[in-house]
Write a protein that binds this DNA or RNA. Structure first.
Lengths: 251, 251
DNA sequence: CGTCCCCTTGATGAGGGTCAATGGGCGTGG
DNA sequence: CCACGCCCATTGACCCTCATCAAGGGGACG
């Protein structure tokens, strides 16, 4: 049998076939609701490392969900000071901050070859009005973004360099695990400089802290490649409960 | 514990009569749509200074909009480290971060006598599905919260103590002006300690910075009472252009 | 094989945290 | 009405963490 000619339409990755749909916008949707969502989503060719998905000031017309690869978003103030506001992995949504003013207040740059789903926002709003669980999930995702920004605020406002770096590594490990990768051995797609900027530290401090954690036998870091040797101690430094500890106060 | 509701007749403030509706959730709604929103909103008796609107871990069932007074929200990590994530003035909405997990990840405390509108969330979702402009405004408000958190991230990640304090004062001044108060003379409802925590600084640094700005003739501060003597220089220190264009929030 | 960029490591110093003492408002109670 | 005590704010002295400046190593890629 000769293989049929390849049609892009058939290769399209539908939400219901996408391994990410438990992490992404379609969470909680019925199958045929997912089809409706599929119909408005655009899947374009991948971005190469260093390409912008959108830039600060661009008109806002769509949300972006990472399908594979990774992206950093960063905002700039009027002095040109740059602050990375997030690193986005598969299943995570970008552009939520642009709804308010109708243009993107931050820029998004691919950290490696990255493919995305582009979700035109007016269509999404229309569809959300028809599908309660889609509306709910959209609100949940926005809420999650707020929660995560606030977690970062605690890091930047209250924590030492070592605590920030530990929290960062634990966070990355957890997210890797959610995506089916190893939580104790992975590659960081972002540079030390990016990590430093994200955590409010300099590149030198990041480097020294990595070295220090390595000397203490908590991690093994070879440039981008990270091995976590002692998850429990790392979580402790990060100020997070040990996984099995039920002693935290619930107010 | 929430204060009991009192007779509507005494407190009846419909959205369409509320001076805040250009800053708040009803923005963009037709008059009779506003009536529908009114029907689901609960207006309870005011909270006294030091009372909690909700606490970390509480079940999430409603959003809160400040009608008068002011509120601080703060989250706690497992070490008990506290980070104030926002100060909320009239027309501003709290609880958006709770949608994600279904409980409040932060606590909200009245900084002075404060009255609020309580908006049951499931009702709001139902109504949003029927009123496109309500849905849109809800999404915009969530988006605004994200944008503001990210502005704070830049402050905490990149700015010196003096820049942070200046930016804080400019921000408060702008918000006062939007609410019809003077932008050059106002009272801060929060303590130095709260400001310090919010900005990632100690109370001593806040106090010293205020004194320094006063010596330079930029402000006049008598405890809670603030006079801004040189808006332009203050904006310059804050890293903002002369007239606000980065952080302007039109609701 | 050379160049560039990223990362690492060391030396030094400053910004802001920490500790300590004092003063001023304000509420409470005599 | 005044006195007391508490809390908040201010100010000073000292110190520590992390930024800054500087130099050098090691991959990646042409």
């Amino acid at each position: 049998m000769t293989p049929p000619t390849v049609k892009l339409s058939t290769l399209k990755t539908a939400c219901k076939n996408c391994k990410l749909h438990q992490l992404c916008l379609p969470l909680g949707l019925e199958n045929n609701d997912m089809d409706q969502l599929d119909n408005i989503i655009k899947r374009a060719k991948p971005y190469q490392k260093g390409e912008y998905l959108f830039q600060h000031g661009d008109n806002f017309d769509a949300l972006y969900a990472v399908r594979s690869g990774s992206v950093k978003t960063f905002s700039q103030d009027d002095n040109g000071d740059e602050q990375i506001t997030g690193f986005y992995l598969a299943g995570e949504m970008m552009g939520l901050d642009a709804v308010h003013e109708g243009f993107h207040p931050c820029s998004a740059l691919a950290l490696e070859t990255t493919s995305v789903c582009k979700i035109p926002f007016t269509h999404l709003e229309e569809l959300s009005a028809k599908l309660p669980s889609l509306q709910h999930q959209l609100l949940r995702i926005m809420s999650k973004e707020i929660t995560e920004d606030q977690a970062l605020l605690i890091l930047l406002g209250q924590k030492s360099a070592e605590e920030r770096v530990a929290a960062y590594l634990v966070n990355m490990a957890d997210r890797m695990e959610k995506r089916g990768f190893s939580s104790v051995e992975f590659n960081l797609s972002m540079s030390r400089k990016d990590i430093g900027n994200y955590l409010g530290l300099t590149i030198e401090t990041i480097s020294r802290t990595f070295s220090h954690l390595q000397q203490d036998g908590l991690i093994n870091s070879q440039r981008k490649h990270i091995e976590i040797l002692n998850t429990e101690k790392l979580r402790a430094i990060a100020g997070l409960p040990k996984i099995s500890c039920g002693l935290k106060s619930t107010g």
